[in-house]
Design a protein around this nucleic acid. Structure first.
Lengths: 345, 345
DNA sequence: TTGTAGGCGTTATCAA
DNA sequence: TTGATAACGCCTACAA
């Protein structure tokens, strides 16, 4: 390969090795705008010129400067994902699905964490908003009005929450809850506790409402205990109240809490599921590792992340809302942590 | 509050509600460049003007356009984090530490996944590179030369890998391995297997080398089996070879593999730790949930992520490399998966 | 098909 | 202290 014109080489080096369309234009002997056209939307240019330009671009290892590109277009090719807690296994699946969907479309995923605090969340969002083309709120603790207002400004999709007509991807809560309640009622349980999640969790309330319906249908008793922190700690702390309620089965807002409760039960010498059945939601990594393995309602987390990003993208590209594929199916996974109601209490 | 001049209001609305420094300048009756100064580096401006400008900015709910800002400065206030597999629990801690360190400094973290493939990784990096100020490679599978070349272009920090004089944050492999080997040797094991990770994993080789040293020192036998996929699957698949080796203790490259091996052992009716001791590295979520709970060498993953980002930032802000705080301490956590060597075999 | 020129929102350099 | 003006790298009418 021939040497580059020394002046050009020097200019590029000064910029840290990043070539611009001007450099390519010079090398190919065309106008920068032609380079832009050739590289952005191939086809609308003579084959010969395009080939020349491609060769020059290749030679200079050219990459578009995304920031420069974003300025005139207003698009950063970036999607934001907001989660309450990155280390919560529930969000892993969501993150992965979202990342893949974004990458597949040539978008970059930006992740921000809000620490379970509405304050921090609002702040993170306003920091993020100007630099992303769209936003996915995975576990938002924001008030409905805030969410609606935000949705006006950029394409936005909610996971596990419905707010007005803001786009969302939701699980089929009812079928999962029904399957779970059928399962427990079938085992003879008539006194069941629901361990609620955070106060601001929409999905926790939905689960509770479905639980109420099912309890009525099956003629069993349920009580709600909470709100609780949606963590292992949160599950551990609530054992006393569960015992006081004299329930024989517990459904926790998520697997993390169920695991915490089981740990506390084990420490207190309470047999699971002999004396107490425990179940959760989500089917996170770890749920089948614990002993006894956890009965849970499986959620399609990865799919949820993927769908959410796809919806944002479809708003972005087509300008229209994606057709709604409906609720995400939900499956009861029966493992060892639930069993027959203890004979006497 | 008074009404905005209608023309101004219309202009802002056209842009989707985002005001610019021009709008503020108009509202405050000053020059745009003055607005830029007032808002970017307070102090270098008369108090009166600054107050006026702040008031106008407040009123228009002004936010800087990060992309426009990045153009003249060449800084995007963004740091890239590249991981092989987002859903690998090992990276959770790293991600969290990195996110916090970045957010604390006003930077945004961009995460990309390379799927354990050097090809995909190289591609992800070149997609990311133009838009980030610096890069953290958490579990890179790239060749040394590629890494060195990349490090020339932008501040870059490696986790769990040393390449030339590229900055890195590394664990104190030796002390952890020594503690583990002392532990196993103390239990009477004299025939130990190391389940290697991926061929391209630098840290896997380092662990093996330390293992060799320790084995020599303690006069016990070790053999390496691998390379293996660093996943639960990878651990499951290797059980036959472990048995064939007639080892009484296995040290896996990471906890995921150890868990997989334990599952396979349980399925095959092999008692852990009665017939076989199993240990891992990292101490991921799930390691203490499994039964028996896993003996492992704890790594400070969150701290590693944090340190890595801090190093990038210090290169970015001070222009100089951060002082090296040395290796990250590593701790043996003895749980139930390791026990005395079985009497006869 | 290709070149010209203006603009995207901000910073930075000079004057005033 | 403040204002004018030229970058920054790319896109896009519009003209040639």
């Amino acid at each position: 390969m021939e040497e580059l014109p020394p002046e050009l080489a020097a200019r590029i080096k000064r910029r840290g090795g990043a070539a611009t369309i001007y450099d390519i234009a010079e090398l190919a002997g065309v106008n920068p705008s032609t380079v832009s056209r050739a590289l952005s939307k191939p086809g609308r240019i003579s084959e010969k010129t395009e080939a020349k330009i491609r060769a020059a671009a290749e030679r200079l290892d050219f990459q578009f400067n995304p920031m420069a590109r974003a300025l005139p277009t207003g698009r950063s090719q970036t999607i934001g994902l907001l989660v309450a807690d990155i280390t919560n296994p529930v969000v892993f699946g969501i993150v992965r699905g979202a990342e893949h969907a974004a990458a597949a479309a040539g978008y970059t995923l930006v992740i921000a964490e809000s620490q379970e605090s509405g304050e921090a969340e609002a702040q993170a969002i306003s920091r993020l908003l100007p630099s992303v083309d769209g936003l996915v709120l995975a576990t938002t603790r924001l008030a409905d009005e805030k969410i609606s207002a935000l949705a006006e400004r950029k394409p936005m999709v909610l996971i596990n929450r419905r707010v007005g007509d803001v786009a969302g991807v939701l699980p089929d809560v009812e079928s999962g809850v029904n399957a779970m309640m059928d399962h427990l009622a079938g085992l003879g349980h008539t006194s069941i506790v629901y361990l609620a999640g955070p106060e601001t969790s929409w999905i926790s309330r939905r689960r509770w409402e479905s639980l109420l319906d099912a309890a009525e249908r099956l003629d069993v008793g349920v009580v709600e205990i909470g709100p609780n922190s949606p963590t292992i700690e949160g599950g551990r702390e609530v054992l006393r109240r569960v015992q006081a309620a004299r329930a024989t089965a517990v459904i926790a807002f998520n697997d993390l809490m169920a695991i915490g409760l089981m740990q506390a039960a084990a420490a207190a010498g309470i047999d699971v599921p002999g004396a107490l059945s425990v179940a959760g939601f989500d089917d996170i990594f770890g749920s089948e590792l614990i002993v006894p393995p956890l009965t849970t309602v499986q959620a399609q987390l990865e799919l949820a992340g993927q769908r959410a990003v796809e919806k944002v993208l479809s708003r972005l590209e087509d300008g229209r809302d994606a057709i709604d594929e409906g609720l995400l199916a939900t499956t009861l996974v029966v493992r060892g942590s639930t069993g027959p109601r203890p004979p006497v209490r």
